[in-house]
Design a protein around this nucleic acid. Structure first.
Lengths: 228, 228
DNA sequence: GTATAAATATGACAAATATCATTAAATTTT
DNA sequence: AAAATTTAATGATATTTGTCATATTTATAC
């Protein structure tokens, strides 16, 4: 099995605060796994006893509402860690994590993480910083969901997706989502999302090619996201 | 000035993880202040260099949207701490904190907090637990804002307010909010909030007396909040 | 490669929610 | 206590968004 000490993905997350020996220790206890597209890495309400470090791949974090609708809360890609919120708060997992493409993931047991928090305050602070930042993002999201109309939220979401996943050689946002998933991100009906995407295309703000989306007028999209 | 060692409010937050000497140290550097009703303890975008421990009083945490509307993200009362998210993530404050009634608050400088995180891992873990829990709540909120209709969100909010603030001797929820503030909590127009409150009263689910609200049929309200 | 299913697109209509206007009630100021 | 201001309430109407129906395109299975 590959070693944490040699893994370059850790530089994107709190694990970069660990020294060589600490990483060796993690390496000894870690397991690595592959999550196929469409499979769940975690499931809402379940307990997990460790932290996942995403080596490669993209996933969506969702919540199932009482009405049966899926709400996408967040998108995560390689370099991020998952599951720390649950083990730190001693609560069950709050979100489903579903692979949008095949993922390579490493699992580090809860005990090792908690030990490391006690002995390495830099690691501890880095985790806090990560969660604190996420909390701020979530609060912003609440405000936007509550106050912005669907069109603005769609514009916002497209800009956000490009920020997270970047673009391919042709300039298309580098993630493949169904129209339903886009609708579940902005919190609207699938038909509404489709209609608004069509409108944005007609207005030459974006370009559509199958499921691929290219932002052709970022300025305009920015304005729309702010209600102009 | 009163001492942290003798303050009973700390048992509700992470400060209860500190021993006598550690509290003495905090006491020496802390300042205490009074925030009058309507005044801000923190302002969105500003930097703070410390943590606030709410000794007494109620406040709302809000965000000002690009369209100029205020969104209430959260209600906080005595016993809670504020500002730790900002100092832990090294980001400006994300929310306005406005007193709903006169508040007594203690301020502990950032340096002391960070030192304590490094030396007391129980304190550190307790802070993480607090923020992790808040993140989970925020994620739930996103989902509800995005997917639930206004009526359901109002029901949810009323139940939530009773949970946080409890009831007075006559059974009314123990916080005074304007209709506009209720609207800003659930993310709707003030008129819509007023109308829906009137309907709930007509349906004998709640009782209204001026700004005071009493839940008279919690079961029904629970059902409404889940879409039945 | 054809059949089958799933996803996308679009129109017609219904429901939810916002906006504007006006009145009534409560609160604050003088 | 009266006047002025703010807040609450309610009707009328406009706008936004959701739902249902159906066609078309795309993906998947055989």
């Amino acid at each position: 099995m590959s070693k944490c000490t040699q893994c370059i993905i850790k530089r994107f997350n709190s694990l970069h605060k660990l020294n060589h020996d600490e990483l060796e220790n993690f390496s000894e206890h870690k397991t690595s796994l592959i999550i196929k597209k469409g499979e769940n890495l975690m499931t809402e309400g379940h307990t997990i006893n460790g932290l996942y470090c995403i080596k490669d791949g993209k996933c969506k974090l969702t919540k199932l509402n009482t009405n049966g609708k899926e709400q996408i809360i967040k998108f995560v890609k390689g370099g991020d860690i998952l599951g720390h919120r649950s083990i730190l708060s001693d609560e069950p997992v709050g979100l489903n994590v579903t692979a949008l493409e095949d993922m390579h993931v490493c699992f580090i047991p809860k005990g090792d993480i908690l030990d490391m928090i006690r002995q390495n305050s830099q690691f501890s602070l880095s985790l806090m910083k990560n969660i604190s930042h996420q909390l701020n993002e979530a609060n912003t999201s609440i405000s936007q969901m509550a106050q912005k109309p669907v069109k603005d939220r769609l514009a916002e979401t497209l800009l956000h997706l490009e920020n997270i996943f970047g673009t391919d050689k042709e300039g298309y946002i580098d993630v493949i989502l169904t129209r339903e998933e886009i609708a579940n991100t902005i919190g609207t009906a699938t038909e509404s999302a489709i209609r608004l995407l069509s409108n944005l295309k007609k207005d030459q703000v974006i370009d559509l090619s199958g499921k691929k989306i290219k932002i052709t007028n970022k300025n305009a999209l920015n304005n729309i996201s702010e209600g102009y």
